[in-house]
Design a binder for these strands. Structure first.
Length: 651
DNA sequence: AGCACGCCGACT
DNA sequence: GTCGGCGTGCTC
């Protein structure tokens, strides 16, 4: 007996190993094999009796699993993903499957008591629930729930999940971040008990394996997790839920660069299961597909309970003024809100103390020696690179002109925390960013302290914007809405609009009406008009026209080819060679547009120079064909070619 | 991707 | 003479 085995290597084909007489090896098992000089984990995708010729066959060393942990349908899915994202099937399988050896159930989820499940659906929610199930009968499987913040999308998801589980089918519930998964975990646990598992990268390998097996066997029927949960296997998948479908974290940032949302579409089609996307600010691509009728569109326009959408005010701030971080109006509203016993959330999407340190004499900016980004000053006196983690002490004199006039420009969460504490003396300010929540469980702690009323002002980066449900927050302040708006990326507007709608939605979730104050340097930017009216439709149409004019998605598919390496000349030389090869292979295909080559906006990260080419094409197959034909041109082992199909950002 | 082999420069 | 640079090729 012989087994076709994939290993995690950038190689297209499987390898044949012989199965020793007395060894129990079945399709869907992981095995240990000798591959060249090393032993690796392999994935058995088929068995046969044809003695291969032309090479000597090695024995499988031993099976890792005693029973299969995946089936043929995952193998087919892996091939589809491999073809779409131009990654090797073995690499896809190793990403999709858990890698532990000994299943462990030692994982304990932190429990709090901040959320309660309310089973009653409001009429709109009920209508959406019914519409989706009706459509399912007609094999209409893809659905988008466009629901304003606080409209109770989660209740609809839960009802759908219950419906499936009652019919002995299973459910995968994807959320963008682990952060959110612990909150929703608790809520779902009340409903589904031990039938629920979690699946994300913060579990250990063995915990992942344990949960994978529980879901695979049908012992657990519902899984909540981040993007990797999209690969969970089950004999009868009934529904995939992609919450906050617009979120960029569904896109994997290393090979295979898949998007869990697209994988969900593939699985929905293959396994005839429902796929329900939800968002208050759907991605332009998803909404476009919905409006074209390719995805069923459902709206939730009312907030759950008695809550109303908050009132939004846009304030132009003067960068010259001393109180630019906290305008008089925001200060006033904050005082009022705190005086009435409510809570405030401030969003400042930038961590550290000050994002730029420059010399007042020669105006040179201190940059990371490994990346071409400015170093951020942190409170402990260090200068930190937010890309590669490089740390150095704040220099006493300017490295280029030796002047002693070192100025810290701009404000991050740390600096604003200091001034907010000063202004609202005696109030409890909590700063929530990557630096303050590095320790496990901190976020859970914050949730408890917000609910108990211990925290008055929660100040943080985009972390504070997502998914929280604090009924006593009635004011949200965005301290500088411009951060990230002007980066050279076609999704910048969409990202910021979504973030600002999301954070606005944290205000006014209880009985008290909410208010949002957005401070910006550029109140003329069209985005703010739509934001002020909480007008997603308006923003969508505006953004769609921009995309149409420049032929960006949804009017094209994109592929990004990036070469990185330590030697700038080699990178540059090879990106031009790649350009020539692509052009050659594109000949006659006028449907593909090639942009570049150019230095990537982040030209150097971690000592690697980065140059890229963007391809736009009407059809993904054509893009993939041209890339496949051209990629071999890069053979320099000191260079690395990143192929990113449907990139989320192009920095 | 690793990890070999292999073929030339500068060292004890 | 050999230690070690990284170009090229293979992995069942």
């Amino acid at each position: 007996m012989y087994a076709e085995v994939f290993v995690s290597c950038p190689l297209d084909s499987s390898f044949t190993y012989s199965v020793p007489e007395d060894m129990d090896v079945r399709v869907g098992m992981r095995v240990r094999v000798e591959f060249g000089k090393r032993t690796m984990q392999g994935y058995v995708v088929s068995l046969h009796c044809n003695k291969p010729e032309g090479f000597k066959v090695k024995d499988i060393i031993e099976p890792i699993d005693d029973t299969p942990i995946f089936n043929e349908s995952l193998v087919e899915l892996a091939h589809e993903i491999s073809a779409t994202y131009l990654a090797a099937p073995g690499e896809v399988l190793s990403t999709a499957l858990p890698s532990g050896y000994r299943p462990s159930d030692r994982h304990k989820h932190p429990f709090g008591s901040c959320l309660k499940y309310n089973a009653a659906l409001m009429p709109q929610q009920e209508a959406v629930f019914n519409a989706i199930l009706d459509a399912e009968k007609n094999d209409s499987l893809l659905h988008l729930i466009h629901g304003i913040t606080g409209s109770g999308k989660t209740e609809v998801y839960i009802k759908l999940a219950q419906h499936m589980i009652e019919r002995n089918r299973s459910v995968i519930y994807c959320v963008p971040e682990i952060n959110l998964s612990s909150q929703i975990y608790e809520r779902l646990h009340h409903v589904f008990g031990d039938s629920l598992i979690v699946y994300h990268s913060q579990l250990t390998k063995n915990q992942r394996l344990h949960n994978w097996k529980r879901f695979y066997s049908g012992d657990a029927r519902i899984a909540i997790g981040t993007r990797s949960a999209i690969f969970l296997q089950n004999s009868d998948l009934g529904c995939i839920i992609i919450d906050e479908e617009h979120d960029g974290s569904y896109k994997e940032n290393s090979t295979p660069r898949y998007n869990a949302r697209r994988v969900a579409f593939y699985r929905s089609r293959r396994e005839k299961c429902l796929c329900v996307l939800g968002s208050a600010t759907p991605s332009i691509e998803t909404m476009y597909a919905a409006k074209k009728g390719l995805i069923g569109l459902h709206s939730l326009t009312e907030r759950y309970g008695d809550a109303q959408l908050p009132e939004v005010e846009i304030i132009k701030i003067d960068p010259e003024k001393k109180d630019k971080n906290l305008s008089p109006l925001l200060t006033l509203y904050t005082k009022r809100t705190l005086d009435s016993g409510h809570q405030v959330i401030y969003l400042l999407n930038r961590r550290g103390f000050s994002p730029v340190v420059m010399c007042g004499s020669c105006s040179s900016i201190l940059e990371c020696p490994h990346c071409n980004v400015s170093l951020t000053y942190h409170k402990n006196g260090s200068l930190l690179c937010h890309y590669c983690g490089y740390v150095q002490a704040l220099p006493k004199i300017c490295p280029s002109c030796s002047s002693e006039e070192i100025i810290r420009v701009g404000a991050g969460t740390q600096r604003v925390e200091e001034s907010v504490e000063k202004i609202f003396n005696g109030k409890n300010v909590f700063r929530m960013d990557q630096d303050s929540t590095r320790k496990k469980g901190t976020i859970y702690d914050v949730i408890g302290r917000m609910n108990s009323g211990e925290i008055d002002i929660l100040l943080g980066t985009q972390m504070v914007a997502k998914g929280f449900d604090f009924p006593r927050v009635s004011l949200v302040g965005v301290l500088l809405a411009d951060i990230g708006l002007n980066i050279p990326d076609f999704r910048a507007s969409e990202r910021i609009f979504s973030l600002l709608v999301q954070v606005s939605g944290r205000s006014g979730r209880g009985k008290e009406p909410g208010r949002v104050i957005i401070q910006t340097l550029d109140d003329g930017h069209p985005l703010f008009q739509f934001l002020q009216k909480q007008d997603y439709e308006g923003f969508y149409h505006h953004e769609l026209e921009t995309r149409r004019a420049l032929c960006y998605p949804p009017f094209s598919r994109l592929a990004r080819l990036l070469i990185r390496g330590k030697n700038r000349d080699a990178v540059e030389k090879n990106i031009y060679a790649l350009r020539d090869e692509l052009k050659k292979n594109m000949a006659g295909d006028s449907s593909i547009i090639l942009l570049g080559p150019a230095a990537a906006p982040l030209e150097k990260v971690g000592d690697n120079y980065r140059y890229h080419i963007i391809l736009k094409g009407a059809r993904l197959e054509n893009l993939c064909r041209v890339i496949s034909l051209s990629r071999h041109i890069i053979s320099d082992r000191n260079l690395y070619l990143e192929i990113d199909i449907d990139p989320y950002d192009i920095l």
